[in-house]
Amino acid sequence: MASTSVVLNSGTRPPSGGRVHAFLARLKRGDEIAHLITLIFAACIFALTAGLVFELWRNSALPRHQFGWHFLVTSVWDPVFDNYGAAPFIYGTIVTSALALFLAMPLGVGAAIFLAELAPKGVSNGLTFVIELLAAVPSVIFGVLGIFILVPIVRTDIEPFLHKTLGFLPLFQGPIYGVGFLAAGLVLTIMVVPFIISISREVLLAVPPEQREAALALGATKWESTWKVVVPYARTGIAGSIFLALARALGETMAVTMVIGNDPKISASLFAPGYSIAAVIANEFTEATGSLYRESLIELGLVLFVVTIIINALARLLVLTTTRRGTAHA
């Protein structure tokens, strides 16, 4: 749009006279006022973000002063004696998100390769549309499906199977509940896969066709040109899509709350019930009577906010650099 503003400015500038004159002329005709009004609304976005940070910071003062950095590593969560530590929630959030990424990464990138490189254009667009609809399904509905369909399957089939085949690993030991890290990780997988697919596909489509043609001309098979040329070319953007999915998974509330088991414990087993940051806020916020209790929950929110903002910032930069480079070459 840089070209537009040049055109517009040169059109409105009087033939002689300085910038002050031009400014006054625009002011008289209302252009500067319109500019200012829209600018104020745009600035609201900064104000909103700043307000968000300020409120989270201000309303978590009590636990920050009382517990300091220990808040992040203590695993006690005791509303009765007003003693709070975030470790079990941080652990649960990381474990479920890591599990989701571990499963969603190959699935999502594989599907994106199929949609971008192999499928005919009509099929690709149709399937992408369906997959993007999956991203629009509200998280509470994933939670309902999780409780009533996934958890019973996990309890009767998946966990006994894993216990039998991989039971020598501490990850797959201990009593079987159904609800727990594994169920939460599986629901999150389904929820983040659409993000990885649709962004990775876009990034792959932005790879210039010359790259593929050159590889194929050198005698590479379709798979070799895809895996050794196209995917490496797009790797920054694919990494970006995975980071975006990670941020989604970390902040996901409802679906996780409904299947993770809500037990603030750190356990090595994926079968065990756990808790996540978002889930504990969702469950306990309205019941938090003391101000230290409530502010501890808000500090958990602050932790979640800071982590997701950092990951998002990184992801956006990665996606931005690849799609730009791709289109610049094309």
């Binding site: 806020i281 916020f285 997701t308 998002n312 910032a313």
Partner: peptide, 19 residues
Amino acid sequence: VRYTADLLNGVPSIVMGIF
């Protein structure tokens, strides 16, 4: 502005609730 909007879009919804 654009970048901030994208970041705001990524803020977990539960945090918006706290706000």
